[in-house]
Design a protein around this nucleic acid. Structure first.
Lengths: 188, 188, 188, 188
DNA sequence: GATGAATGAGTATTCATTCAT
DNA sequence: AATGAATGAATACTCATTCAT
């Protein structure tokens, strides 16, 4: 038979982990994740050495996905404000579309199980985003602040905006715009 | 009467919990906390019904302490920008002085063990802060945004700034100022 | 002040133990018994060395009470069958009137905490009853069986009858009579 | 398939439970039972959900075994007295041969952990015995008493007889016979 | 590889008993 | 003596990880 669909199993586990961790938190038993993935609990450990390993992979993959989503369809020729707005919208769209992934990322971000290496990998995945921010602030009031500081603020602002969009869906559009305007006032 | 319940013991446990949870996370064994507090593991449960109870009290007390610190010595007669800056500085000073408390608060904030009631208590403690923000944005670009949204952004911005001050202590002062300027650009 | 009313406290504890153990079983915490007795948990241990001690005293006292109840108002001049019936009725009346004491006795009888010495004390308290049985079987078919065997059967039969009287109160009288007739057929 | 759940392990646990509970009572730690069964403490819980579950299964299985033993080799064509005597002897033989099981059953019978469902299952297992009793008393003095009452008395009488046989082994045979005669006088 | 049973370290909580007040 | 806080041993149950099949 052709190659065993190990890739399938691996991603089945990963996406089961998202669903389970989103609802149960990081304390969720690996056995539950395996079950949700339709896989035996033993199998989980042939794809991931330890639970911590699974968590780290999850962190990296979801982070990467978020980064890709953020840059999707970026109008390369457009002005910087336009491109920034595009990315901002993309990020919020993604977060709204995959609330579970966002929850999981929030859990993982504060987990002691995520290694510095994984965090670095996460940052690298966000390189495109970082560069866009770099350009955005180039002529603004934060032009001298360390890039990381600006990134941190952006992340925080994004989180706050998303939280609010989810909490008050009726006015989601307004919040999205208000968030961007606030951002631009800060760095643009 | 027998040996009366001792406030000292209670706070010994609470502050041991801060130290232990800051370094071990919320999964830290109650026995370890008790030991750090110089108290028997059974005693912990005469002061707190359950571990979750301990966590909730911790959340409320530390949150209240942060609120008090934020408002300490507020120059009531000063203009709004000055007062906002004072609060901003206070918050960052406190967070810098008690990094463990901040870490613990960060852990607790995302914990499923903190009850809605405790969260409400936390918000109430922050009432003074909220009112100051309310005034700050009164004539600014975010005057129409929901207060909660502004609060969320402030929190996020504070966190980002603190993170950065801690990470790059040499330029802590600059980051503190830059953070406030960013804030004021957004809401002032 | 006159003598401290220690006797009161002691019996308060004992009767609280009956109520609590009847409803919670032998696993009931001593603290609960103390509370029900209106006494501090520490005090319980000035009246009874250990929980096992409390249980043993309880066993002996309740057993003695049952024995006394059984012999109460015994018509000394009457014939043996009449006296036996009187005792039989007394026992069932007592058990019906104090179901909690009976429950407690049932629990204690199978407990590993009751010492042989206590069991002997219990038997001694039942001496009057034993003697009556002795006479009852004197000319009957079990005249050669060991007394203890007959006693055991009587106890068992009593228990069964009481259980049934309690379970089917409407026909309690019938069961009481049927039980005695069965007894008499066996030994009389 | 992985290593299949093993009936051997299950019964090893069950019979270890009998030995341990017989000597230590129902308070015996599950870890001790597991150890006696030559199994890890965790394994006990793959065969029985909770300790209470283990206790209930034990109750049902031992009760069933007692019932089967009681009816073993029953001479179906014989007269009722003969059949009753056969059952009586069987029961006593079994109880004498497995004193631990009897002890355990005695403990379990009064335990609050045994569910009504388990008690019902126990009664059903005893259906054959019940029917034999029904026939036995059919023409006797207790023909009008509720069957359950007669069963209770039989149980009690059996218990008393066994206790005595065990206590006074030298005359076990005599007690066995005396017990049956007493029974037959009551109901036959 | 896949399975799921086996393992055993780890943990919150209880409770008899002691002891400071 | 009375109180009730302090103690710490004890215990059911969980779960990441291993391993027999």
């Amino acid at each position: 038979m052709a190659r065993p669909k190990s890739g399938d199993r691996r991603s089945a586990i990963l996406s089961a982990a998202i669903r389970i961790i989103a609802s149960e938190g990081l304390g969720a038993p690996t056995a539950l994740i395996a079950k949700e993935a339709g896989v035996s609990n033993g199998s989980l450990f042939t794809y991931f050495e330890t639970k911590a390993d699974l968590l780290n992979r999850l962190y990296i993959e979801v982070k990467a996905e978020a980064a890709i989503a953020a840059m999707d369809g970026l109008p390369l020729k457009a002005g910087i404000r336009k491109r920034a707005l595009h990315m901002w919208s993309n990020s919020l769209d993604w977060a709204t579309a995959c609330p579970e992934k966002r929850r999981v990322l929030a859990h993982l971000a504060v987990s002691g199980d995520i290694t510095p290496a994984s965090r670095r990998a996460g940052h690298q995945a966000m390189a495109g985003v970082a560069s866009l921010i770099e350009q955005s602030r180039e002529n603004g009031p934060m032009r001298k602040a360390p890039l990381e500081f600006v990134v941190a603020i952006l992340n925080a602002l994004t989180d706050a905006t998303i939280d609010f969009m989810i909490r008050d869906k009726a006015n989601a559009e307004k919040h999205r715009t208000a968030g961007f305007e606030a951002l631009w006032r800060m760095i643009g």
